Amino acid sequence: MLISPTALYALALLAIPLGAIVLISFWTQTGVRDFDTTLTGANYVEALSDPIYRALMFRSLRIAGLVTLVTVLAAFPIAYFVSFGVPAQKKSLWIFLITIPFWTSYLIRVFLWKVILGYNGVFNSGLKVLGVIDQPLTFLLYNANSVVITLAHAYAPFAILPIFVALEKIDRSLLEAARDLGENRVMTFLRVTLPLAAPGVIAAVLIVFIPTIGDYVTPELIGGPGGTMIANMIQAQFLRLNNAPLGAALAVLAMLIVSVIAVAFLVLGSRASGAKGTRK
Rank of each mutant, 00 (worst) to 15 (best):
K276P: 05
Y142S: 14
G19A: 14
G65I: 03
G223N: 05
S259I: 05
I160V: 15
I170K: 06
P157G: 13
E183V: 06
Y9V: 10
W94H: 06
R172F: 11
Y216G: 04
V45N: 10
W103T: 06
L18M: 05
G126T: 04
P157Y: 12
S25E: 03
I207M: 11
L175C: 09
K90M: 15
V22R: 05
N243Q: 08
G277K: 05
F102C: 00
F189E: 04
H153F: 01
L61K: 03
A10M: 11
V148Y: 13
V82H: 04
Q237D: 02
P101Y: 01
A20L: 11
G223Q: 07
R240S: 12
M1Q: 11
T104W: 01
I16W: 15
T150N: 15
G226T: 15
I202S: 14
I52S: 13
G277Q: 03
V72D: 06
L190G: 11
P219Q: 10
L14H: 08
T150P: 04
T28Q: 07
V201T: 10
V205T: 15
A262D: 09
L39D: 12
S4R: 15
Y142D: 10
T218F: 02
D36P: 00
F58Y: 14
K276V: 07
A88W: 12
T37Y: 04
